[in-house]
Design a protein around this nucleic acid. Structure first.
Length: 275
DNA sequence: CGGCAGGCGGTTA
DNA sequence: TAACCGCCTGCC
């Protein structure tokens, strides 16, 4: 597999650890030497290194042009403005923003995001990653050895539709297996969901997962996923009851408005790491 | 061993 | 429409 290098410059508000550890994606991991992150975006493998002083992102990739990767890392969005705006409407978010100041909300593949977050329900990150890799290894295109190991693309709907519930159970996907099979079928038949209600209509997708798919898959940055961590945050910061998800959601919409999704990421990343 | 981890779907009252 | 509960698996 041929590797090409793409250099993107004059980048602010960017930190690979913040981006890849804030829970929005599952296929990037730190390299052995800790100098970079290696993973997949769609059908392409990549190795990303960022020089904070120079504001320079160096990508070694198996495909995708500057435009693709620039869009993937959301480099055309002004995060300084987003942070200023959030800080103005909610000064209490300052520490969280400082802690995760390099977060960017990636532009990820929609189908992959749908399936990945169905897997994420009632699950933990190491196992989510293992499940997804297992799916790629069994149903995705083999790219051969890249950056020291054999790498596989996430299967497109066509490929994943070959999977049966029994096979997925054998891959330890658990009770989510039937959701994956049914959701893949639905996606094949109906095409990509375009709004919250359409996403919510997928098997194995409830309010939390639907909001993750809206935010990370459809890049609807007003979406505010409320998981156990965010519940804890809303309780600590604003005194919400655990069960009052509706109240939290309405509050987030009022307080953070069109940038609720960014606020969720800063808060989530900050609070999860403090525990 | 029970409890839990980035919940959901089905059933009940 | 709110509350409860079972669920695959892995790790504490």
């Amino acid at each position: 597999m041929e590797i090409e290098t793409i250099k993107l410059e004059r980048i602010k508000d960017f930190d690979l650890a913040h981006i890849f550890e804030c829970g929005q994606c599952f296929r990037w991991n730190p390299s052995e030497d800790g100098e970079s992150y290696v993973g997949m975006s769609g059908d392409y493998a990549g190795k990303a290194s960022f020089n904070q002083e120079k504001g320079e992102l160096v990508l070694e990739v198996t495909g995708g042009d500057r435009k693709f990767w620039s869009n993937y890392f959301d480099l055309n969005t002004n995060y300084s403005l987003i942070k200023e705006t959030l800080l103005y409407s909610e000064p209490k978010i300052e520490d969280a923003i400082e802690y995760g100041k390099g977060i960017r909300i990636l532009n990820q593949d929609k189908f992959e995001t749908l399936i990945s977050f169905i897997i994420s329900q009632n699950n933990n990150i190491p196992r989510i990653k293992k499940c997804i890799e297992s799916i790629c290894r069994n149903y995705g295109e083999n790219l051969g050895e890249v950056f020291g190991e054999e790498r596989f693309a996430f299967p497109d709907p066509e490929r994943l539709s070959k999977a049966t519930v029994e096979e997925l159970m054998a891959l330890k996907l658990g009770y989510r297996s039937k959701y994956i099979v049914a959701s893949t079928k639905k996606y094949m038949e109906e095409g990509c969901p375009a709004n919250y209600d359409e996403v919510l209509a997928y098997p194995g997708v409830g309010p939390k997962v639907a909001n993750c798919i809206m935010l990370f898959g459809l890049h609807d940055v007003e979406a505010f996923p409320i998981d156990t961590w965010v519940k804890q945050i809303m309780k600590d910061m604003y005194g919400f009851e655990d069960k009052d998800v509706r109240g939290m959601s309405e509050f987030a919409s009022k307080r953070f408005g069109e940038y609720a999704g960014y606020a969720q990421q800063y808060l989530f990343y900050y609070y999860r790491d403090r525990k």
